[in-house]
Design a protein around this nucleic acid. Structure first.
Lengths: 117, 117, 117, 117
DNA sequence: GTGGTCTAGACCACC
DNA sequence: GTGGTCTAGACCACG
């Protein structure tokens, strides 16, 4: 199930990207399974088709999904897709960690925070 | 030394906030020391005074600096300033960690990333 | 109806904040209703969009309204909004009461004043 | 003893006014007693003489002190001074109460706040 | 269309 | 001199 927070300052298209990655990580959707069409998903979520398109496009650029014109949109091959998604997430987390570290938090403090998640 | 990337999508005032926190963490500026005036810093960085002021105001709201109208802007007492800054940084890092975790990275994977920083 | 005193020493954005809270308290606007766009309100009040935005941003930080980028600005859910607004007002009144008390007015005198409002 | 908070957003001259009224209310200084000269007080508090002057001037306008040229500055006649000071404080508190009331707090809520001071 | 950021430059209060 | 507010008007990201 895709959850969006329309009040959040995080752009909807970004939330949508995260939700799709999250559902994949949970196993709720899996390799080569087809995703709803842009229009269908937009209607279901009451959002603008452009917004869905934007999310799909980004996911395709990262190799997480692939778009077969005229046929539909699909999760990429399991292994490849998995790797691509993890890479994106790792990089985001990495830069957040680097930033916190450069701003004065030690590695030990960072690890402590994670343990208490 | 303050470095800004004028082309970045990260707002300048936000970069400026980070830079000031970073300089404090490095010990380049410390307790109760005065910061450049809004106008002076704006000229030095070739940005608008309003942008500097926005950064200063935010830092004051967080308790990292304090502003004495008509006199100038100063770092808060070391202890207080330190605590306020750490809080901000921790919260930022915490939400990044939560996100990565919800998107499928385990705590162990996160810790591994930090160790390799 | 929003009333501003352009000659007052009270900043316009602050007056605007108060007016919006007041209209909410009066029930003139209520839960999840949309507020005028930044530009529209600025034109109606003959003030600068930046000034409206500053008020909106502050109200959002307090949880009284929420801002959906690209869509508009809305009152928060009734309950949440109510609580946030009361908090702000209480704090303001509290500091005024503390001040009057420290300057020599007894609690009884303060209560007397309120009864005669 | 006069206490000023140089970090506060409240202007120094206003804090000084409050402190003098407070000391009078506490009985630490009383009727027709002389106040320090502008210069002396400015030096003692490490502030600008203009700032002291401004506070004295305002207090005189309100009838709380009187300035005898060449002789010094004095608290006004006890009764008169008392009344003038109370008036100022009452008016300030009154407008704060009115504001809170118009923004949605009932008289009962206001009284409750005062009881818990 | 919406809000978010930024510039250029003005005027004010405070010290 | 300092910071605080405001205007006029630009450009951008988002839906």
């Amino acid at each position: 199930m895709i959850n969006l927070d329309y009040k959040s300052s995080v752009p909807i298209y970004e939330q949508l990207i995260n939700e799709i990655i999250r559902l994949k990580a949970l196993g709720a959707i899996s390799g080569n399974e087809s995703l709803p069409s842009v229009r269908t998903l937009a209607m279901k979520l009451s959002i603008n088709p452009n917004t869905v398109q934007r999310a799909y496009k980004w996911l395709e650029e990262q190799g997480i999904i692939y778009i077969a014109k005229g046929k539909g949109t699909f999760l990429a091959d399991d292994e490849e897709s998995e790797k691509a998604a993890k890479n994106v997430i790792k990089n985001n987390f990495l830069s957040a960690a680097k930033k916190a570290n450069s701003l004065g938090l030690t590695k030990e403090e960072l690890i402590e925070i994670i343990k208490n998640l």
